[in-house]
Computed example of a mutant assay.
Amino acid sequence: MLVHICCSVDSHFFLEKLQADFPNEKLIGFFYDPNIHPYSEYQLRLLDVQRSCKKLGIEIIEGQYDFENWMKAVKGLETQPEKGSRCEICFDKRFEVSANKALELGENKFTTTLLVSPLKSQEQLKRSGEIFHKKHGVEFIAVDYRAGGGTQDQSRVTKNEQLYRQDYCGCLFGLTMQREQQNRLMDEMFSPISNQILPASIEERLQMYKYRMQLEDENISYKIIKQKFLNYRQFSFRLIKGKQEIIPAYALSYSTLPRKKAQGRVEFENKNIHYFNREEIKFITLKDFNLACGFSYKNINSLIYNPPSYEEEYKFRTFLACGNYDLTPIVVVEEIPSNKLTIELNAKTYEDVQEKLIKI
């Protein structure tokens, strides 16, 4: 039996139940989810599914990540709610590909882990499955593992197996609506051109979940915990001399301006720190930044495109004795300008939750 898989939270419990209920069936997992966005989230879910299937002794096949074709398929349905017509088109596309994969492998049955997801309509899934049964002759196995306390059992399995528990279905449009309803920053969509790993980002979680697989291979015990912290995202930053000359400059993480803009001049210097006469802004030259941190950046552009880690930037804030809760804008420049300056900084700090892995 081919089993279409969407994520490990749904698949691990679902596959365990299938193994018990269909002991004579060889189960083949098929991870086909072109709706997942961004791609780093797709990679993270695939990684956890691969781990899950390995633990269960189930073969896993990865389908094509044809996101562009998925976008074309749901065009015009971007604002449809969860369980609406966009989801139905999404199911149809995944069922079509899954049914064809089953035929390709010589299987005459297929099912989907979407059946166990509380975010999905089972009736909607069954309708799609019946259509493809008639069309392709591949029987759709519509099992209900939510009933009789199944959802609670699934939650227990997820916790015991320390599976990656994503907090949105997967597609860009569902994520957008969910974050708007929650009045939360959609920080999943931040991906710096520098490839800097942002706190509580998908990329940070991907690194952590890869590391946990390494620990498991080495039989090292661990726990994945959550902690609250103050997160930060920088939308844009510019330093302008005079009316329109843009000066190459870099604003360190956790630099904030209450009104997103400040005008003034560098007023004085003390111990290589140059103080602006507005908004507590501090400037430091690239040379002094390199000396303080042990870096060797040749110019500001190299700093912008290959910045230090957040941890290294935080250490530098500590070096400047700014304090643990400091949000002072700290700007690195090649030379301290004497002209009138305009600083445009759009950034946000916000309460967030971060996953951490601890060895025990």
Rank of each mutant, 00 (worst) to 15 (best):
V3T: 12
C7M: 09
V9K: 10
D10C: 13
E16Y: 04
N24F: 04
I36L: 15
P38Y: 08
Y42C: 00
L44A: 08
C53K: 05
K54S: 14
I60T: 07
I61N: 09
Q64P: 00
E68G: 01
W70R: 02
M71K: 12
P81I: 06
G84H: 02
E88K: 08
A99R: 03
L105E: 14
G106I: 00
N108G: 04
N108F: 09
K109W: 02
F110S: 07
T113G: 06
L115F: 15
L115Y: 13
S117V: 01
S117Y: 00
S128R: 11
G129S: 12
E130D: 09
H133Q: 12
V138N: 15
I141Y: 09
V143F: 03
G148D: 14
G149A: 06
T151D: 00
D153V: 00
Q154K: 05
T158H: 00
E161D: 13
Y164T: 02
Y164S: 02
Y164G: 01
C169V: 00
F173M: 01
D187N: 08
N195M: 01
Q196Y: 08
P199V: 04
R205Y: 05
L206E: 01
Q207K: 10
Q207Y: 12
M208Q: 11
K210L: 06
Y211C: 04
Y222D: 07
Y232Q: 03
R233I: 08
S236R: 13
S253K: 07
S253C: 11
Y254G: 01
T256F: 11
L257Y: 08
G264E: 02
E269P: 03
L286E: 09
K287M: 06
D288M: 01
L291I: 01
G294K: 10
K298L: 05
N301C: 07
L303Y: 12
L303C: 11
E311I: 03
Y314K: 14
F316I: 01
Y325I: 03
T328F: 09
T328Q: 10
V332W: 12
E335Q: 09
E335F: 06
I343L: 15
E344Q: 10
N346T: 08
L357D: 07
